[in-house]
C-alpha cells in the first residue's frame, strides 16, 4: 500500500516535472537534492577538516621547517667558511708584507754593496786612465819630436835632390 503511494507520488512529481519543463527549477526536486547536499557536504567537510587537510598542512609545514633548518645550517656553514677565508686572507696579507720587507731589505743591502764595489772599481779605472793618459802624452811628445827630425831630414834630402845644394838636417830644421 505504502509502495503504491510512493509510486504515485514520484509519478506525480515526474509528470509535474515534465509539465514545468525545466527540472533545475522544479520545486519537487528541491528537497531531495538539498537533503543529499547536506549529507554529502557534511561527509566531505568532516573527512577533509578532520583527516585530509590537517595531514596536508602537517606535511607542508614539516617541509617548510626542514627547508628552514637546512637553510639555517647552510648559512652557519657559510659564515664559518667566510671566517676561515678571512683568516686565510689575513695571513696571506701578513706573509706578503713580510716578504715585501725582506725583499726591500735585501735589495737595499745589495744596492749599497754594489755601489761600494762600483765606487772602488771606478776609482781604479780612473787611476788607470790617468796613468794611460800620461803615457799617451809622453808618447805623443816623443812622436812629435821624431816627426820634426824626420821632416828636417826629408826636407834636406828633397832640397839636395831638387837644387843640388847640400843642406844639413840641422839647417833644414832651423827653417821649418
Amino acid at each position: 500500500m505504502a509502495e503504491t503511494h510512493h509510486n504515485t507520488e514520484t509519478g506525480v512529481a515526474h509528470e509535474a516535472g515534465h509539465k514545468a519543463g525545466f527540472p533545475p527549477l522544479d520545486p519537487a526536486n528541491f528537497a531531495p537534492q538539498i537533503i543529499w547536499l547536506a549529507i554529502t557536504f557534511a561527509l566531505l567537510y568532516g573527512l577533509l577538516s578532520k583527516i585530509a587537510l590537517p595531514r596536508i598542512g602537517e606535511v607542508i609545514e614539516e617541509r617548510r621547517d626542514r627547508i628552514q633548518r637546512d637553510i639555517d645550517a647552510a648559512e652557519a656553514l657559510k659564515a664559518e667558511t667566510e671566517k676561515a677565508l678571512r683568516g686565510y686572507e689575513q695571513s696571506l696579507a701578513d706573509a706578503r708584507s713580510k716578504a715585501g720587507g725582506i725583499a726591500r731589505e735585501t735589495r737595499d743591502k745589495l744596492a749599497t754593496e754594489t755601489d761600494k764595489k762600483r765606487h772602488a772599481s771606478e776609482a781604479e779605472v780612473a787611476a788607470k786612465i790617468a796613468d794611460a793618459e800620461g803615457r799617451i802624452a809622453a808618447m805623443k811628445a816623443n812622436a812629435l819630436q821624431n816627426v820634426g827630425d824626420i821632416a828636417a831630414e826629408t826636407a834636406s834630402a828633397i832640397v839636395g835632390k831638387l837644387i843640388g845644394v847640400d843642406v844639413s838636417a840641422a839647417e833644414a830644421k832651423k827653417h821649418l
Binding site: 528537497a31 531531495p32 537534492q33 537533503i35 543529499w36
Partner: peptide, 13 residues
C-alpha cells in the same frame, strides 16, 4: 520529507 536518492545525489556522493 522527500529524501529520494536521485542522480544528482549520486554525483554529489
Amino acid at each position: 520529507l522527500d529524501a529520494t536518492f536521485t542522480n544528482s545525489a549520486l554525483f554529489m556522493l
